[in-house]
Amino acid sequence: MTLITGATGGIGAALARELAGTHSLLLQGRDGARLSTLCAEVGGAPLLLDLTRPDTFEAALSGLGRVTNVVQNAGVVELGAVAEQPHEVWTHTLAVNVVAPAALTRLLLPRVRAERGTLVFVNSGAGLRANAGWASYAASKFALKALADALREEETPHGVRVTSVYPGRTATPMQQKVRAQEGGSYDPAAFVDPATVAATVRFVLDAPRDATLPDVTVRPGPR
């Protein structure tokens, strides 16, 4: 089984569609109606979970069977200068983008180890470079990179592969929100198609066992 967090979002939904029919899917979301609609479309099972409540994770995951792959895709973003953003924004961003993936990973590791599976962390270009106005989001993504890097070294002896994927700007509702916060226009054609990122993640998951891809960057191609 492959678990995708943030499955009802742009990249998550594209990945669910990309893997449908070849992977047994467990799809996490917090909107029950949207999650049910997606599960009906791709044949996955729903996991209704609020990622800001790690205290609820263990109970929610207790009935799961085999889990081979985990794609930590869920994320939030709120732009703003360090001088302006209140602690609530930082707390929420770090909770969803870092604490939740760490907590879910810890709980799922025994299952993934048993399957010699793969953990994919959908990061961002902001996890490699922090620009003005992006401090809270970039800090969370730098931390997510640190989580993945440490986990890779820890889990290699257990046969678990760990990959960070760094998409550039992708044509998703999140990007539409970002462009509005930046005061710019949103043209999906100017950004990476979420299906392209999904195909990249699938390549990582399906790579032969004698290969591991620690870091994969996806950028818009020439137009």
Score class of each variant (00 low, 15 high):
residue 173 P to V: 09
residue 168 G to A: 13
residue 177 K to W: 03
residue 85 Q to H: 04
residue 176 Q to N: 11
residue 214 P to L: 02
residue 134 W to G: 01
residue 199 A to T: 08
residue 48 L to E: 14
residue 189 A to E: 14
residue 92 H to A: 15
residue 33 A to G: 10
residue 31 D to T: 12
residue 106 R to A: 15
residue 162 V to E: 03
residue 135 A to H: 03
residue 86 P to R: 04
residue 197 V to G: 06
residue 44 G to N: 08
residue 60 A to H: 12
residue 221 G to K: 06
residue 129 R to H: 14
residue 214 P to Q: 03
residue 200 T to Y: 00
residue 136 S to Q: 08
residue 82 V to Q: 04
residue 8 T to N: 07
residue 76 V to A: 02
residue 121 F to Q: 04
residue 122 V to Q: 00
residue 24 S to Y: 05
residue 82 V to S: 08
residue 1 M to L: 12
residue 167 P to R: 06
residue 108 L to C: 11
residue 82 V to L: 15
residue 183 G to K: 10
residue 115 E to I: 11
residue 217 T to R: 09
residue 106 R to D: 14
residue 170 T to G: 11
residue 150 A to E: 13
residue 54 P to K: 05
residue 100 A to E: 09
residue 176 Q to S: 12
residue 179 R to Q: 15
residue 119 L to Y: 06
residue 80 G to I: 05
residue 141 K to T: 07
residue 14 A to L: 10
residue 19 L to G: 02
residue 58 E to M: 01
residue 204 V to N: 06
residue 197 V to Q: 03
residue 82 V to A: 10
residue 95 A to L: 12
residue 215 D to M: 01
residue 73 N to V: 04
residue 74 A to I: 03
residue 59 A to W: 09
residue 60 A to K: 11
residue 95 A to E: 14
residue 175 Q to W: 02
residue 193 D to H: 13
residue 205 L to D: 09
residue 218 V to A: 00
residue 105 T to L: 09
residue 143 A to W: 01
residue 59 A to R: 14
residue 67 V to G: 07
residue 14 A to T: 09
residue 220 P to Q: 08
residue 188 P to I: 11
residue 139 A to D: 04
residue 181 Q to M: 14
residue 219 R to K: 13
residue 25 L to Y: 06
residue 152 R to M: 10
residue 129 R to A: 15
residue 15 L to W: 05
residue 216 V to M: 04
residue 196 T to P: 07
residue 9 G to R: 08
residue 64 L to I: 05
residue 159 G to I: 13
residue 171 A to H: 06
residue 115 E to Y: 08
residue 110 P to A: 13
residue 111 R to Q: 14
residue 78 E to F: 03
residue 215 D to F: 02
residue 187 D to K: 06
residue 126 A to Y: 09
residue 158 H to T: 08
residue 172 T to G: 10
residue 46 P to L: 10
residue 153 E to L: 15
residue 154 E to V: 09
residue 165 V to H: 01
residue 60 A to Y: 06
residue 120 V to T: 02
residue 26 L to P: 03
residue 162 V to A: 01
residue 208 P to F: 05
residue 151 L to W: 01
residue 175 Q to T: 08
residue 56 T to W: 00
residue 36 S to F: 00
residue 4 I to R: 08
residue 10 G to R: 01
residue 93 T to L: 07
residue 179 R to E: 15
residue 151 L to T: 04
residue 47 L to G: 06
residue 130 A to C: 15
residue 38 L to I: 07
residue 138 A to W: 01
residue 13 A to H: 01
residue 210 D to L: 11
residue 36 S to I: 04
residue 194 P to H: 05
residue 26 L to H: 02
residue 186 Y to K: 06
residue 200 T to I: 05
residue 34 R to K: 14
residue 181 Q to R: 02
residue 21 G to T: 04
residue 104 L to E: 07
residue 86 P to S: 11
residue 27 L to Q: 02
